[in-house]
Amino acid sequence: MNALALARRPLVYVLLSVAAFVSVFPFYWMVVGATNKSADIVTGKPSLGDSLFANAATFFATVDVARIFWNSALIAVVGSLLTLAVSSLAGYGFEMFRSRFRERLFALMLLLLSIPFAALMVPLFVMISQAHLTNTYAAVILPGIASIFIIFYFRQATKAFPAELRDAARVDGLKEWQIFLYIYLPVMRSTYAAATIIVFMANWNNYLWPLIVLNTADMKTATLIISALTSAYTPDYGMILFGTVLATLPTLIIFFLLQRQFVEGLLGSVK
């Protein structure tokens, strides 16, 4: 081994350590911030303070915590389940039952992937208003259910689904929907785990579209309400960071619960 290779190894550890530190530090800052007064946070006090309960009290007094987290949870859970159901059915269908016409439709769909949301925003808003759906959960959830990205992801993953399993199930007399429900779904659980993380995070963190269609405080999500707190003239960062800790917990928990399958699921899709 030459000198260059010997010198490279510590360099790799330094690089990765710096990257890991930079990545994790804001999380540390968030937790520490939730225990400090706003004045201490903007002047960069990096140690734990004693204002955790004061911040919590202010947060609970300022916003209807139960209500906004209920709104967020309902939108994220129902939205994710519908997205997973509709998009995985389509991904499975496109891969398992190929026809020339459907292949063309699929190619067209991939083209649509590059159309930015900004281009759809205005007509979608007008459609939702004309259907009298503004300020409803349905308005937030409906446009996102058929996700091209997730359909594409499931189609790629379905390529790894063993054909023998399906053939055996057919011989046993199972109907197509039974094969999907009782064979495909359990076999592909790592793909579903990965897709769940992606879809849940996207729904939970969704900002622009809910900002447009939800307009009363009792319908708004945690993301919208906490974001509005930060644009106050003198934001109370202690209270806000306490809120962000709460708002980050659900995605963190889901991530750590499904992490193992997530990495495996992604590996499967790229193959």
């Binding site: 804001p26 800052w29 968030m30 963190n205 993301t223 974001s227 930060t230 962000t244 980050t248």
Partner: peptide, 9 residues
């Protein structure tokens, strides 16, 4: 992290 968490941070 959620969007608000990271922009606030």
């Amino acid at each position: 992290t959620s969007l608000i968490a990271y922009s606030t941070l």
